[in-house]
Structure formats: C-alpha cells, structure tokens
Design a protein around this nucleic acid. Structure first.
Lengths: 196, 196
DNA sequence: AGAAATAGAGTGATCGCTCGCTCTATACCT
DNA sequence: AGGTATAGAGCGAGCGATCACTCTATTTCT
C-alpha cells in the first residue's frame, strides 16, 4: 500500500469519526502511523489531503451507480434495478458520514464545491443518456426536472445513514422504488396516474 | 429585539457564511455588535448558541411544511399543494446553507443529533397522520417506506440550494411533483403504472 | 450609591505547518 | 569485499496564529 493510500485511509477514518475540521493532521498522522513531517512531504496541505480523499470517494460512488462501461447498454428497467441494488451500499454509515462531511466542506471550500459540481454534472449526463430514448416528446423542462429530482433523491439516499444509521434498507428501497419508477415513466403515463 | 435574538441572528449569518466551526465567538460578537463577555452572560457556551439556533431553525421549518393547527384538515391533494408551494422557500440559499451546517454538526455533536432525530420523528408523525386514511390496506412496511422516502426527499430539497444556489424552483417542482404524487397514491394504482 | 449591563485584554490549549535533524539503504570508490 | 559518500524517507519539537472562554474594569441605569 502506497504512503498516499495510507494517509488517505487514515484521513477517511478520521473524517468519518469527527468531520473534516476536527480531523486534525496530528490525529491523521497517528492513525496512519506516520510523522507530521513525512505527511507534509507527501501532501502539500491538509486541504490537499481532503481534496484527494473527496476525489477518491466520488470516483468510487460514480463507479457504483453508473459504471461508464455499461452506460450505453442500460435501459430504464436496468437502471431501476441498479439503483435498488445500490441502496444497501448507499445506506452504509461510514460512506454516508463521509459524504456528509464532504458536502459540508463544499459549502465552505470553493475547491471542494467545484469538485461536487463536476461530479453532479457527470451524474446528470449519465442519467440523461440512459433516460433520453424513453423521454422523447417530453418537454425539456420536465426532463430536466426529473433528472434533477433523481439527483436529489440519490443524494438524500447517500446522506441518509449519516443521521439514521440503523435504517432498514429494504423498507427504504420499497418506498424509493415507487418514486423512482414514477420519475422514469414517460409523462403521459405518470399524468394519468397522478389525477386518479 | 432581545439580546438572545440578536446573538442568534448574528450566529446564523456567520454559520451560513462559514459553517459552524469557523463561525467563531469573536466573529459572532462582532456581527452582533456585542462584547465576548456579554455574550457569555447570555449563553453558557458556543454549543448552547448553536443548539438554540438549530432549534429556532427547525421550528421555522416545521411551521412552514406542516403547520400543527391544520394537520387534521389536510388531505393528500392539499399536502401536495403545500409541498409544491414550499419548494421556493426550501430552495433559498441561506436556509439551505444553515440546514447543511446543522446536519454536519449533527454528525459530530450528539446533542444536535438528538435534536435532528426528534424533528424527524415529528415530521414522520405529521406525514403519517395526513396519509393514513388514504393508505388503508397498504402493508405497514410499504407505508413506512413511503414516509421515509418523503422525509428523504424533503431533506434533499432542503439541502439542494446549498450546493446548487442557482437552481430553478419551477423546474425542480415539476420533477418533484411526479415523485410526490406517486408516493402519495395508494399502492394498487402506483403498481399498475409502474409496470407499463 | 448600588446593581446590572457591557466591555475587551488576557489565559491556556490547540491548530496547521516548518525546519533541522537522524537513520537507513544504495552507489561508488579503492 | 570493505569503507565512504550520498540520497531521501522519516521524525517531532517548536512557531505563530487562533480558538473558546474568564475575569476585572468601566459605564449605564435606578
């Protein structure tokens, strides 16, 4: 394991346990069993560590939800399956705590905010690619609204375990599926259901 | 305006601008045009200020989404209307930034976490009261899953502007409505739509 | 005058980060 | 091979800044 990985793993553990700010360099060093001086030979600053950690975490997330290799092959039903399968992974407490810490940091640190925005764009693009064929004829605004809602729901899921560590994945998946299928069905169908 | 309110308003502004940790006592004091010593005569600690601020913010939120006075009178259509009307308010950047900071703090401070859990319970109860009549016959697990999904979507909406300050409320409301109506329709109806 | 409100310099702790040092392994010379 | 020079991984005491908080002095009311 490289020194970089070693530091990032230690930083991850600290951030999950106490957030970005309270994860001090000295605690990260203790966790990594390295000296302060050495860590600063490998990363330029605490911020650089956090950026690298965030990048690694996001890459992991994107691979889990929309793997680039299979993007072209995914239809809507497959997307729903993939989503529902990812629910337990998203509801993992450590993952959620890290995501929560990263988003909190994004509110303060413009470099992290830019990272979040970039990943969101990639996620929206991936969704759009999958969903576009089924949504022909739907107004652009409605498509965007649905994609944005999917993004928001995904983020909600990714954060949920942070405040609700003991939530039941299959109960949440059941509710989630209802909303998911509605958002991914063409407009006419959804409309006829809505007003019943 | 009471001294307490004055401090909380100053704290709110600081937290929105820089998060809970970076919102230092001295900056809050400067913002409130008060001395450090005086602030500590009114609040016991920085944590006490943050708890009070969180409580005030949550109370505000609950009043906006499910006002207790009209809880009995709300049916599902009225609830959807209320939700959609609340979207622009939820998408306010300052509100979202504060919510984001509070949730980040909850991940670290058990007292704030307990506050969040309490408010979530109140919110779930309110939803259940409104939704129960229409959901008779639905399995308990499905009802809970839907309520939990609604909670998650509400939270996602409440946080969204923190990372996406310039999002278009009506576009999001359009997508949101689709998911909302699906979650609030009885099961059979939703199922027949799902598998089209 | 006495009480309450207000002020802000001061305290000890802790932060991110620096810098001069040690130690070890390899390269090079004889 | 055996001795010496060199490189760079690793170390941690210490620096200046800043934190939450205290304490005493002063002003403002009654």
């Amino acid at each position: 394991m490289s020194r970089k990985t070693q530091i990032l793993d230690a930083a991850r553990a600290c951030v999950i346990a106490e957030g970005v700010h309270a994860a001090t360099i000295s605690r990260i060093c203790a966790q990594a069993s390295m000296s302060v001086g050495h860590v600063y030979k490998i990363f330029a600053s605490k911020e650089a560590i956090m950026i690298a950690l965030t990048e690694r975490d996001f890459e992991d997330f994107m691979l889990h939800i929309t793997h680039p290799d299979e993007l072209g092959k995914l239809d809507i039903d497959a997307l729903v399956d993939r989503y529902l399968n990812a629910v337990p992974w998203l509801l993992d407490f450590e993952r959620a705590a890290l995501a929560q810490a990263v988003l909190a940091e994004a509110a303060r640190n413009p470099r992290v905010a830019e990272l979040v925005a970039r990943v969101d764009d990639r996620f929206r693009d991936a969704l759009r690619t999958i969903v576009a064929p089924a949504f022909e004829g739907l107004a652009e605004r409605d498509i965007n609204g649905r994609i944005e809602t999917l993004l928001m729901m995904t983020r909600a899921l990714a954060l949920h375990a942070s405040t609700h560590p003991a939530s039941a994945p299959d109960m949440i998946a059941a509710g989630f599926e209802v909303a998911l299928r509605a958002l991914l069905s063409p407009a006419s169908l959804a409309a006829s259901c809505n007003r019943a």
